[in-house]
């Protein structure tokens, strides 16, 4: 089965590991992600000012181009891209003013027909967790994993319509199927501080500390996410936290697709485990 795919800017640069393990894992499961022939940045944030239509044009163009391909779907894995594409699509479908204005910019006649879909949904709803279990080359054997969703995947619930806005479980269901032991902790949909890392690093440091301690206190050996910015904040900030506190114990922060790829037997180099600040290799490859 083929599904049109929008990688997004970060997946072609700092988050190649997310891109390659998403494509590789889904290919091993029989789903080929077909990259859109032309694409731009999605805009990264959904404009919350009602009169800011220009902030939606990039995403609208991506969606309109996806509608020209076969499949009726558009897959994207970065939480920011998924958030923006899904909300812009919702606006085009449900808001006649947005539909009219955006189509005027695009010189198109796109009505929001595309279904934006996340690889977590592809795994659960299209491939099926039982089918994934059958294709595993190895299991995670009780590895204690905390799933971190952050904010963009799940909220606001009405528009995102992606699992529960404060207690989603789709990532836990997948990771359990891979043999991991799920760590329940209260921080999984709190915000890591996001782009505030550029403006006020102390905010991000504080939020990351709360999330990490919340997960570590319950025994997490690794944290997984689908967002390159969450991954960066949670991963890099541990270097700062370790500088301030000698007793700080680091926890590797991975993309969920890296664990999926590992269990499906993707070649080690394509997992790109060496590109994180906290090295996950002793935990994953030593085990």
């Amino acid at each position: 089965m083929k599904i049109p795919y929008f990688p997004g800017c970060t997946l072609h640069s700092k988050a190649r590991g997310l891109d390659e393990t998403t494509r590789g894992s889904l290919a091993a499961l029989g789903v080929e992600l077909v990259e859109l022939p032309e694409w731009t940045c999605c805009g990264t944030v959904f404009p919350l000012a009602q009169d800011n239509y220009i902030g939606m044009v990039a995403a609208a163009r991506i969606l309109a181009n996806a509608a020209k391909m076969e499949g009726g779907k558009l897959a994207t894995v970065c939480s920011f891209c998924y958030h923006v594409l899904k909300r812009v699509n919702y606006a085009i479908k449900n808001n006649s003013e947005a539909r009219k204005k955006l189509n005027d910019y695009l010189e198109e006649n796109y009505g929001g027909e595309i279904e934006t879909i996340h690889p977590l949904e592809i795994c659960k709803e299209i491939i099926g967790l039982d089918a994934i279990r059958e294709k595993l080359k190895r299991k995670l054997k009780g590895l204690k994993v905390a799933c971190y969703y952050g904010c963009m995947l799940v909220r606001p619930a009405a528009e995102m319509n992606f699992d529960h806005p404060e207690n989603p479980t789709i990532m836990e269901e997948l990771i359990s199927a891979l043999g991991a032991e799920v760590v329940e902790y209260p921080g999984k949909t709190t915000c890591c501080g996001s782009y505030q890392v550029l403006n006020d690093m102390s905010l991000v440091k504080q939020k990351v500390k709360e999330i990490l301690y919340s997960a570590s206190a319950r025994g997490a050996e690794a944290i997984i996410t689908s967002c390159p910015l969450c991954q960066f904040n949670l991963d890099w900030m541990q270097e700062k936290l370790a500088e301030e506190n000698n007793g700080f114990s680091k926890v590797p922060v991975l993309y969920f697709t890296q664990l999926l790829g590992l269990t499906l037997g993707l070649p080690e180099e394509s997992l790109r485990l060496g590109e994180h600040y906290v090295d996950p290799k002793p935990l994953l490859l030593g085990a």
Binding site: T10, T44, F80, Y195, Q196, P228, L229, Q231, F232
Partner: peptide, 13 residues
């Protein structure tokens, strides 16, 4: 930082 942080930060702030 990942590129998305720059785009989102500049768009918001």
């Amino acid at each position: 930082v990942p590129q998305m942080a720059l785009t989102s930060g500049f768009r918001k702030l």
